Simulated scan of single mutants.
Amino acid sequence: MSDLWMPGAEVLDIGDHAPTDGGTAKAIAHITWDRNATKAKPLDLVPFATLRSYFSGNGKGSAPHILWDPFTGRIAQFVPANSRSKSLVDTPGGTRTNRAGSVVLQVEALFFPWARVNGTAYETLRDTPCKGWEELHAWVASHGVASSWPMGKPDGFVSRRDERIWRIRSGWFGHAQVPENDHTDPGSWPDFPGTQPKPSLAPFPGAAWFVTGRQSPLVAAMHDRLVAEGCDRYQSSRDKDVIGSGDVASYEAWQAKYSKDNGKGWSGPALQWPPGPESWNALRVPTS
């Protein structure tokens, strides 16, 4: 028998349990979206403890099953798997939402677009470390939830709602895909374990990697991102996969722009070549 309380989760049982309707097992992907940030003005992530206290206190009327911090892997659970939770709008007489399955597991990821953690801003949930996802997915799957997205995997803050698919299919649904609901989250979600493609963004290779004359597809990718960010100080695009003076000037322009846009107040050596991990991660250089 599957565990009603996820192993390793902090249990804060808020009571008010009620059965689900039976049928296809479902999981619903949400983000907390508790702050409105932008690329130009990222904001610090709300502490896990704040949301934990909210859902177990004044916000228990809209509490999910699970609150998940993708940066630390911490998880809090507020109701058992065999109970409905109340994270979805469920209008009287309409399509059942919170109860529409053998389980309807509501997962709230602690995230909003352009959340800032330890100086780095993250545009999408997929860009975060996604710590704890493998364990969370395994627990959800143990309750019969298919590792699939019947209405398509979330890719951007757009809605697609199909009441027939909702009623008959098992799997993961974005909040934006649930009938009667008008939210557009989660925007993105991590891949199911075992299906992850090559990481889309290149990790920081270390300051010592950035030596004049180094040739690599990663240098060309950096070149393109610097141009896209309006920091083009190149004389030409010839040999753009080789580190040269244009890369130095363009990257220093990027560090100055990043510092200004994010209120860093960097000066002197902090603005100079070679790149540092914070500005590199913010540049979002794709893997070659």
Rank of each mutant, 00 (worst) to 15 (best):
G187A: 03
S2G: 04
R164G: 11
W166C: 11
P47W: 09
W68C: 01
K86V: 05
K260E: 11
A18V: 07
A221G: 07
Q77Y: 08
T38L: 07
G194S: 02
A208L: 06
R164E: 15
N82Y: 00
F55P: 08
F71G: 00
F111R: 02
Q196F: 00
G194A: 02
D44M: 01
L67Y: 01
L43R: 10
K240N: 14
R35V: 03
D261W: 02
G213M: 06
V11Q: 15
Q272R: 15
P186R: 04
P179M: 11
P7C: 13
G152A: 12
K131D: 10
R161V: 15
I66M: 00
P274D: 11
N262P: 01
F204L: 06
E180S: 15
G8A: 13
K260V: 07
D90Y: 02
Q177C: 08
W149R: 11
I165P: 04
E180V: 13
W166Y: 15
D3W: 04
D21L: 15
G61E: 10
R161C: 06
Q215K: 12
P80G: 05
V117G: 13
L51W: 14
D261N: 12
G22W: 10
W254H: 07
W149C: 13
V285F: 01
S159W: 01
L105S: 01
A18Y: 05
H17W: 14
H183Q: 14
M151W: 03
A49G: 07
D127K: 08
G57K: 12
D224V: 05
P205D: 07
F157V: 07
H223Q: 10
V46F: 00
H175I: 07
Q255C: 08
G61Q: 11
W33T: 04
L67I: 03
V117F: 14
G174N: 10
G263E: 06
A207S: 13
W189Y: 04
D261M: 12
A176Y: 07
D127E: 15
P42Q: 03
I165Y: 03
I168C: 13
L88P: 00
V158D: 10
H137Q: 15
G206L: 04
W254E: 04
G22R: 13
A40W: 02
S147I: 05
G23M: 09
F157I: 04
E163P: 09
